[in-house]
Design a protein around this nucleic acid. Structure first.
Lengths: 327, 327
DNA sequence: ATATTGTGTGTAACCGGTTACACACCGAGA
DNA sequence: TCTCGGTGTGTAACCGGTTACACACAATAT
């Protein structure tokens, strides 16, 4: 392995000069620069990032903390984060927190010892002290907000209004809203959006809380559908729940979309594969991840960031679980 | 930040003794051990892994190289790897290679500079020089085998035989096999298994190559189904293709499972959400990831490994795309 | 009594960089 | 001519650990 000393020797200068040149810090004469460039080239010198980190107390590692990569929402996010990180020369460390504050804390401590550059966090615990006191750049994704921590999320409320109106426009008279867990900020925003839109109509509605879990959702919806056959529209707070609802409908024997229309929320790939294809309010997850990463890197590199709160627009994707709009 | 020097001072010994005690290397007297333990405790000393790495040229980073975390097969794998890594004190770096040898090479070089401990790789390029010459522990997952590199994969051939027989036992007379890309080892093994099983029957069959991609598969199957309405069974080399086939059947108006039975391969969560639920030959992806990680860590820590090739059994999960077995 | 081996410990070099500081040089302004 | 600020450079300390080596001592073997 060739070191900075070898380069210095070959270039006929001191290691300080080499380091200054490499880091573009301090003065370096044109000749010295040339000599060093040549030496680096010839020796195929590559800087040792560990040695550098030991000094600077900085690395180019980014920690991605999310509840569970297995949740279909996160792979695309992770992909975006990794893609952007890579183009800026950063490396991504994957952390599955299971929403467990202890685990989160642990990841943070462990990685801080490695002089991690920053974190992208999807968590409900953002106000927890281990984040507030982390003393390392953080960007929050999708979830709760702390004024000091830049956040990027979807326009959840807007999306919920959009989805609700889509059902309304398609003639639904009695809508079942599958509300997500109350601890989740996005779920609350979606709920708000639904309420706002539904109350401006004169349709009937009904709200049921429902975890973002397929089998659970299916069971719950099956039950509700049996008890209340008048329901002709379901707006689910997540695609997974919507998939459960769709399955429940097929088990109960209700035809989708003729007797019952369903709209999900998220826009995960699975929606396309269902029969009929799932109409959904799609988040631009990739974009969210990409923005979050860019913002984080700006913070890491002490560049100014334009805003502290980024809201990524959502989009209605119409597929087979809804009918065409009545004129 | 408290350093080993602080601890040495407080314990009244030299840094060498502290280091020896911490690493359980060399001799340390009982008294010295006690004094150091107390000092560590009191000062809340935590070893700096970067400083250590600089010396030992080892870190506790594990690189997970996979084509694309977005592919539904990989999140569970990643989860398993991370879970096991965590319990052994390792940290996982996520690398999306897009099957691009240049990218793979790049990841390897970048991470080797960080003294990465080892890699878990899912790739078709395992014989490529950047792996052979990587000079760092590697475990291959799911894909190609190089005698020197420990590999864990599913029992693909066995699984294919199982799936084929499942269709046969359920009365299929004309089976369409959706063969995966020829570059993929597992796809070839599955093909072999199918051929072996089908040729021992007197059922008719037909093989079509089909990428592991939903929309493509759907289009291909739709075409084939129209040309050949006698097909009464489809065995897909992946769940995604199977989902495409299921959708194609519904578009063509063929009833599943009455007129056409479908079996997939993989066992991804999405299969359950389809209507009808997808019968599939399920891989134990989590187990594969877990085994691979344990094997890698053994290699990293120079412990003996029992075998060089681990085959994880697959399992038939029967859901709604197949009928019950005729007596 | 002497050689040998096993324990136990500290000093200092080293891993491969960064950077504070001292110093030298040069041209411009007083 | 003297002073001063901007350039350019090298020496050496430092980041926080690991470890080769030298040395000391006690217990056993010869």
């Amino acid at each position: 392995m060739t070191t900075i000393k070898d380069v210095a020797k070959k270039a006929g200068v001191s290691v300080a000069t080499v380091s200054r040149f490499l880091n573009d810090s301090g003065y370096v004469s044109a000749e010295a620069a040339k000599a060093v460039t040549a030496a680096v080239e010839e020796l195929k010198y590559e800087l040792n990032p560990i040695a550098r980190s030991l000094n600077t107390k900085k690395s180019n590692l980014i920690g991605l903390i999310l509840p569970d990569i297995t949740n279909p929402f996160f792979p695309e996010l992770a992909r975006a984060v990794e893609d952007v990180a890579l183009t800026y020369g950063y490396t991504v460390v994957l952390c599955n927190s299971d929403e467990n504050p202890e685990k989160e804390k642990n990841y943070i401590e462990t990685l801080k010892k490695k002089y991690i550059a920053g974190f992208i966090v999807t968590s409900n615990q953002l106000d927890a002290p281990h984040y507030a006191n982390a003393n390392v750049p953080i960007v929050a994704l999708d979830r709760a907000i702390n004024e000091k921590i830049p956040t990027v999320s979807s326009n959840n409320k807007e999306g919920a209004i959009m989805g609700t109106n889509a059902l309304l426009e398609r003639g639904c008279q009695h809508i079942l809203f599958l509300r997500g867990p109350a601890e989740l900020n996005p779920a609350n925003d979606r709920y708000e959006g639904f309420m706002e839109a539904i109350q401006q109509s004169n349709a009937k509605y009904q709200v049921v809380t429902c975890p973002f879990h397929f089998a659970e959702s299916q069971k719950i919806v099956e039950q509700v559908l049996k008890e209340n056959p008048k329901i002709d529209g379901i707006f689910a707070s997540s695609d997974v729940s919507a998939a459960g609802a769709l399955k429940a409908a097929s088990l109960v024997g209700t035809h989708v979309p003729n007797e019952l229309q369903i709209i999900g929320f998220d826009g995960v790939a699975m929606g396309e594969m269902l029969s009929p294809g799932l109409t959904t309010v799609a988040q631009d997850v990739y974009k969210m991840g990409a923005i979050a990463t860019r913002v984080l890197i700006k913070r890491i590199e002490n560049k100014p960031i334009e805003q502290n709160f980024y809201e990524v627009p959502v989009k209605l994707i119409v597929r087979g679980t809804t009918r065409s709009v009545r004129e």
